[in-house]
Amino acid sequence: MAEIHTAPSRSLRGFSALLVYPRLVWVWTRAMAQYPASLLTLSLAQALISLSELAALFFVFSHAGRLAGFGLHETLLIYGLSGVAFSLADLFMGAVERLGEHIRLGSFDTMLVRPVSPLAQLAADGFSPRRLGKLVPNLAALVWALGEADIDWTAERVLLVPVLLCSGFVICASVWTIGACIQFVVADARELANSVTYGGQAMTQYPLAIYGADIVRTATYIVPLAFVSWQPALYLLDRPDPLGLPEGLRHASPCVAVALALVAALLWRSGLRHYRSTGS
């Protein structure tokens, strides 16, 4: 009796996406490495852009000793946590923001006919190690701040630093994916998503308390960017929340990350199900 081939189960497909993503990334990295001079200058320029933002933070602090009660090293800790999370998300998931362009050009249809997860293809598309240039200055700022800021280093805090960074990365990557899903509905809304992705980065680089209670509540309960750098920093510095939100929130980053990733996955699936090609 002939064996009937069935499509792999849904869980298996999710697993294959995780396997194929690193391979696509490696293919694109090798492609980019064909132009070493271009790759090097682009990476350097990215690093300089990050450094110029860091310089702006130092200029701001040369005029104000403290912002909303946070000193230079404490703000640098917040800046570093946010910068590392966002540049990791940009490195691995940043390409999803070009979904609208792929839809318009029809290249998204090409991705759909391939037997590989379209999200993995989209995220890996044009993967470029030049984005590491953005990560390095942010990481340096974070390491410096972790050393200089007044942190009571218990075993728990040491162990939780990587967990907090991972949660931040997952939150940012999910926000990026959700932003891309908007483009299933409005194809040229890329910049709209930018106001949450890059805008979110700009906002979480400084102590959230400066934005006032309403915005902090929005960034905690609606678009949970507060869990990228603000709540983790309050935990590491062991400071009371200046806006009086519940103390338990500072331990919630990993749960928020998992929940937001699920929301992003659901939105992506529903976007994919309702997707109709531009027909050109």
Binding site: A64, L67, A68, E191, L192, G199
Partner: peptide, 29 residues
């Protein structure tokens, strides 16, 4: 049109963020 509107929202959001940061500086001096 959609892109223009999206750009306008992004510009406004960044304006609000940058303005708030600078206002925090002027709270000190």
């Amino acid at each position: 049109r959609a892109a223009t509107f999206a750009g306008l929202v992004t510009n406004s959001v960044f304006g609000l963020i940058n303005a708030t940061i600078l206002l925090a500086v002027f709270a000190a001096r």
